[in-house]
């Protein structure tokens, strides 16, 4: 695999102002309220690999995804794709060219396709925007090829999105994403709105296309089973920060961060034999008033004094980088994922 990463995300952060309107603030003397959706997110994605971001809802995965493609301007940090900065205020011509190489597949296949447009026009929009097709015939042919590529009938192009099922719509969304031949696709929970049976088909399609076109994926999901199927490397997010970055195999074999362990322990498996499963405890805290120190400490069985005061940083090491005092001090070893106190039958 190539050594130079395609995508580099450095210290990326996003703060939203969620305070009341100015007048209310003045009259009610309410303070300005800031929500930190993401902070200090750093990772890189090598060419043709799939980097997955996992975490509960509200952990900032989608915000990071939108910042990476440039839909949301970051409050801090930088995104670099193939050496070109995505976050500079100035819109360079280089960045305009870069646009064509980036695409996104969205979560809800019902909202990601314009209900008033025929499928052919939806898929052809990037072709027109980047002037890929020279004329109407060529465009028509290309759309037909794309539809066949994602397992639909080229004659389906004249239909409207509402005439398709959720899985078929997601196939259309994939065809649109592929139409301008991008290299890097950000997938924001592409299967979470679909039936389990359809999920597997879509995931397999995405993997086949990745192999066929040498695509690089940033894959956002809360579903560990899906991530296990897709990812080569995984970043675990908690309250806007990365707590563990690890190769997929390593993460599932020997999770290090207590939060990762908790998530893995909650994954149901069919052969529930020797492994004691434990439900995820507690909820993700309010990001407006995050806990001091390590954001995970209120839920962490290994929390001690230092965790309540000092925020752990992501320490880069091979094979896995972890942001945890307990791991750093060696108090917990990379383990099979069984939490202390969980009794094995």
């Amino acid at each position: 695999m190539s050594t130079e990463p395609l995508v580099t995300v450095e210290n990326l952060g996003r703060i939203y102002d969620v305070s009341k309107p100015w007048l209310n603030r003045v009259v009610e003397r309410a303070p300005i309220q800031l929500l930190t959706a993401a902070a200090g997110v750093t990772f890189s994605i090598a060419r043709t690999e799939t980097f997955a971001l996992v975490g509960e809802s509200g952990s900032g995965k989608s915000t990071v995804a939108k910042m990476v493609v440039g839909l949301v301007p970051p409050s801090s940090g930088e995104v670099t794709i193939d050496g070109i900065s995505m976050t500079h205020r100035r819109r360079s011509s280089e960045r305009e060219r870069l646009r064509r190489r980036i695409q996104m597949i969205f979560q809800a296949p019902y909202a990601s396709l314009n209900p008033r447009w025929r499928v052919e026009n939806i898929i052809a929009e990037p072709l027109r925007a980047f002037s890929v097709a020279q004329n109407a015939d060529e465009q028509h042919k290309r759309v037909g090829e794309l539809l066949r590529l994602v397992g639909l009938d080229p004659a389906d192009g004249v239909k409207y999105p509402h005439e398709f099922s959720g899985g078929q719509r997601q196939r259309i969304a994939i065809a649109r994403a592929l139409s301008a031949q991008p290299e890097f696709i950000v997938c924001d929970e592409p299967t979470s709105a679909l039936d389990v049976s359809v999920q597997a088909q879509i995931l397999n399609l995405m993997r086949d296309l990745q192999r066929q076109f040498g695509l690089t994926y940033l894959f956002i999901s809360h579903n560990l089973a899906v991530v296990r199927h897709m990812a080569t490397r995984i970043g675990v997010m908690y309250l806007g920060r990365l707590v563990e970055v690890s190769p997929a195999r390593e993460l599932f074999r020997a999770p290090r961060h207590p939060y990762t362990r908790m998530l893995l322990d909650a994954v149901p498996d069919l052969d529930l034999t020797e492994r004691g499963r434990k439900a995820v405890e507690g909820e993700i805290p309010n990001p407006i008033t995050p806990p001091p120190g390590c954001a995970f400490h209120p839920r962490c069985p290994y929390a001690f004094e230092r965790c309540r005061v000092e925020r752990p940083v992501l320490l880069p090491s091979a094979p896995a980088s972890v942001a945890c005092h307990a791991v750093e001090e060696g108090r917990i070893k990379p383990g099979a994922g069984v939490l202390e106190g969980a009794v094995t039958p």
């Binding site: 939108k66 493609v69 440039g70 839909l71 646009r99 064509r100 980036i102 695409q103 996104m104 969205f106 979560q107 809800a108 909202a111 990601s112 396709l113 314009n114 939806i122 929009e125 990037p126 925007a129 980047f130 969304a173 649109r176 301008a180």
Partner: peptide, 9 residues
């Protein structure tokens, strides 16, 4: 999302 998709390109 369809508006986001258009903005994206």
């Amino acid at each position: 999302d369809y508006v986001l998709a258009a903005r994206l390109i």
